[in-house]
Amino acid sequence: MSLLAVNNLTITFRNRRSTAETAVVKAVSFSLEAGETLGIVGESGSGKSMLSLAIMGLLPGDARLSGSIRLGGQEVVGASDRALDALRGREAGMIFQEPMTALNPAMTVGAQIAEGLCLRGGLSRADANAEALALMEQVRLPEARRRFASYPHEMSGGQRQRVGIAIALALKPRLLIADEPTTALDVTVQKDILDILDELVRERAMALILISHDLGVIARSAARTLVMYRGDMMEDGPTVQVLRQPQSDYTRQLIAALPRRSRRSLEGAAP
């Protein structure tokens, strides 16, 4: 059985001015195994973020879902808040684009990482702190011990994103969803963060869903790629195949829109 199985998932929102409904995700199906990295690529309005929120059971209340999302054998669609609470963090963790808004500005980062371990992991305060420190070292925060008592505003964007990853990892989820995790970061920092994510997938045998608008980021980390356009799944296959023999016109457009520099290797070897 797959770790994550999304079957015929449709997400609709009621329009404000009429009785019509807008589908932001249309009949999407895919599955994901442990140890696998799936890239989801798409532009704004493609529904890629809605898809990830749906998996986490985090969609706003006026969203309507049909189809099925099975995470670790449990159905997410229609699950109670309590059941979703149990899934979040343990089965799936999430990291966001802008770590500054995802962190509590009034709490030290160490305390924020330890919080989940204490409240939901059932660890004592001391054990939670020790575990938090270990996590900070694992995401390669420089001077983790000193950084433990830092506040988010005292850190750089890349360091904050590492804290975000540490928080998401605290309860040892089997699936990590990273929604544009490096879009707000400089390229040199982006590389470090992607390296860390790759390493986590390898070492923890986790599954990773990497969402990005940047085909370069996806190609670097994901063996499999799903292309979304206006709620439709345009493509699902091995990344190499998606880039070399795209099935849809949209994917071709997306590749053609890349700066020459980024797609050079593709052109050289294309059949």
């Binding site: 390229v187 040199t188 982006q190 590389k191 992607l194 940047d214 085909l215 370069g216 980021v217 190609a219 670097r220 063996a223 091995p238 990344t239 190499v240 880039l243 070399r244 890349l258 520099r261 980024s262 797609r263 050079r264 290797s265 593709l266 070897a269």
Partner: peptide, 17 residues
Amino acid sequence: RRLLAAEPTLDFLEQPA
């Protein structure tokens, strides 16, 4: 050089998956 190397490109395709 560091900046150029960090830029994500599709070069990774050359590596066996």
